[in-house]
């Protein structure tokens, strides 16, 4: 660079090292000084415009009145504006109608995914994979019916299973026979002794004479390959028959209770969830 801008003849600070290296007291370049003054000016302007300085009763406010909460609310309003056209259409629609409209169903699935993760997945698992004691939602076996309306009702009002405990009414041998029969049902086979017990104990009253269950009552279909209380072994079945489900006053009874969500989620959210669950893999 040009010599004249940086004369080596200027004063030095007196520091000399390595024989001849001197520290000069030249002015910094003008552009550098301008940047320094500009950054000082920026600081002043920023101080005036934005919250900057801690005071006893909170920070200084700044003339723009900017706060992080306002910024957050703006962002929330932005995302709501994007969703509004869809959300407004969903308000007056039934879950069936949403399901029938591919565009809206797609929107419902995408936006309900988060809600499902927050509210449903803790019990039913991500993607409705199910957990021990909690039904799989991705299969096509539904205790209370697999239509989107039934699912919507299950979410809104909750569900509670009910089955009496038979431990006091049946002896060990009878329990074994009934358990064996139930297992055979799921394989499409029959057993005479069990079938007689099944009829005499009134199992068909809830599970149906053919054992295919009753969605009205939430009674499980005993003839399919899906078990409400896995695994589908004789021991497991026997335990359920002995101790029942939500049997009042019976210690060790199976617990099957789903809370209602109508007070925690909006009607639209419940509809979207119903569509989401319906599309997990087994909606009917």
């Amino acid at each position: 660079m040009s010599e004249r801008k940086n004369p080596a003849t200027g004063h030095d600070t007196g520091h000399v090292w390595d024989d001849n290296l001197r520290e000069l007291t030249n002015q910094p370049p003008r552009w550098w000084m301008i940047c320094l003054y500009l950054s000082a000016l920026f600081l002043v302007v920023y101080f005036i415009l934005y919250p900057t300085f801690p005071l006893i009763s909170g920070s200084s406010k700044g003339v723009l009145g900017w706060t992080q909460m306002k910024r957050l609310n703006e962002s929330v309003a932005d995302i709501q504006a994007v969703r509004a056209p869809f959300e407004n259409r969903l308000v007056g629609m039934s879950a069936e109608a949403i399901l029938a409209n591919p565009e809206l169903a797609n929107y419902a699935v995408r936006s309900a995914k988060v809600v499902f993760g927050d509210r449903c997945a803790p019990c039913h698992g991500t993607g409705g994979a199910g957990n021990p004691g909690y039904p799989v939602l991705a299969d096509d076996d539904w205790l209370y019916g697999g239509s989107v309306a039934s699912i919507e009702q299950s979410i809104a009002d909750g569900r509670a299973g009910m089955m009496p405990a038979f431990a006091a009414m049946l002896n060990e041998q009878q329990l074994d026979a009934l358990s064996q029969y139930t297992l055979a049902l799921s394989k499409g086979e029959g057993r005479a002794d069990g079938q007689a017990l099944f009829a005499s104990q009134g199992c068909g009253g809830c599970h149906g004479a053919d054992g295919k269950g009753m969605p009205m009552l939430g009674a499980a279909n005993l003839t399919d390959a899906v078990w409400r209380f896995a695994p589908g072994t004789v021991e497991s079945i026997k335990y359920t028959i002995s101790n029942g489900v939500n049997a009042p006053g019976h210690e060790g009874t199976r617990s099957a209770t789903m809370p209602d969500f109508k007070n925690q989620l909006s009607a639209t959210e419940i509809k979207k969830l119903a569509v989401y669950v319906h599309k997990l893999g087994g909606g009917q």
């Binding site: 698992g125 991500t126 993607g127 409705g128 994979a129 199910g130 799989v136 991705a138 299969d139 096509d140 076996d141 279909n221 399919d224 390959a225 899906v226 893999g281 087994g282």
Partner: peptide, 18 residues
């Protein structure tokens, strides 16, 4: 391939993947 769940057993005993 959907990993959650990896597969699902259907009522008729068939295996379903998503």
């Amino acid at each position: 391939h959907e990993r959650q769940p990896l597969f699902v057993i259907q009522s008729d005993g068939s295996i379903q993947n998503k």
